[in-house]
């Protein structure tokens, strides 16, 4: 750890975002290490999604710098370099954001076609097939249109598309919101599995305490317009911030901690390294 910028996948410094008079972020700093799953939590309206959108370049911040894999993302007009970075990440939006006129499999093929036009049709179809199966979808989902899928299946299809380019960095915006507990647990497992196998760095926005306990290496807490703390859950629990205490020690937090303890993925293990 701490061997300089090589270990840092995302570096955000002094970020300021504002919509009119309403300042969402001010002086926000955050470092995401390579190969970790970082959970981003915060109350409603603290700008979790805005932070993600600033990093991936969908929201122009008023001030600050954002560096992904050592490449500054803001204030550059060199599209070639930005494109090279863009192929190294995948994004799963809150509702999947699948293209509604394409089938699930065609959705998965879109990034591949865009960046690697030399791939043959058969190979494209094969890649789409195994990505779909890997994302936990049944094969019957391939030729279906997004409108024919349930919410959970749409999220998995969105994940399949986000993973299409074998990204090193994955952005997930509330992936388990709106899923039933079984589906959410399966999604967590899938994500942890993929992360371990592919060595992904995952930027995960979530409200789901079970997800935090189950798969996140570190958790960043957004409040008062900045990241007030980053650390493992035990490290956060040691802090004396009222929101953090209420979040993790509230009734739901305690239940999630108990569950995690029973499953052996609790904060003790996360804190022991």
């Amino acid at each position: 750890m701490g061997q300089g910028s090589d270990d840092i996948a995302i570096h955000v410094q002094g970020l300021k975002n504002a919509f009119g008079d309403q300042v969402v972020h001010e002086g926000l700093d955050l470092d995401v290490r390579r190969g970790e799953i970082i959970g981003v939590v915060g109350g409603s309206g603290t700008g979790k999604s805005v932070l993600m959108r600033s990093i991936i370049g969908l929201q122009m911040p008023e001030a600050g710098e954002v560096t992904v894999f050592g490449v500054p993302m803001l204030g550059r007009y060199d599209e070639g370099e930005a494109e090279a970075i863009r192929r190294r990440w995948g994004v799963l939006f809150q509702n999947g954001a699948l293209f509604s006129t394409l089938t699930v499999a065609e959705n998965v093929e879109v990034p591949l076609r865009e960046y690697y036009p030399q791939l043959s049709e058969t190979l494209l179809d094969e890649i789409a097939s195994y990505k779909i199966v890997m994302s936990g979808l049944p094969v019957e989902a391939g030729p279906k249109y997004p409108s024919e899928l349930s919410g959970g299946m749409r999220k998995r299809a969105g994940l399949a598309r986000a993973l299409a380019l074998d990204p090193e960095l994955l952005f997930l915006d509330e992936p388990t919101a709106g899923l039933d507990p079984i589906g959410a647990a399966a999604f967590d497992e899938l994500l942890a599995d993929l992360q371990e196998r592919l060595g992904l760095t995952v930027f995960l926005i979530t409200h789901d305490l079970d997800t935090l306990y189950a798969i996140c290496d570190r958790v960043a807490v957004l409040a008062d317009r900045k990241v007030i703390a980053v650390g493992t859950i035990p490290e956060l629990l040691a802090l004396d911030h009222p929101w953090i205490q209420e979040y993790f020690n509230g009734p739901r937090g305690r239940v999630a901690a108990d569950t995690a303890q029973r499953n052996g993925t609790g904060p003790d293990m996360a804190g022991s390294n």
Binding site: D125, S129, Y130, V133, G142, K144
Partner: peptide, 19 residues
Amino acid sequence: ARLIDQVAQADKPCRIRPD
């Protein structure tokens, strides 16, 4: 080896487009 194994498990033919 693990990656190949995982991919092999996901090897199920899947249709891309509707009939």
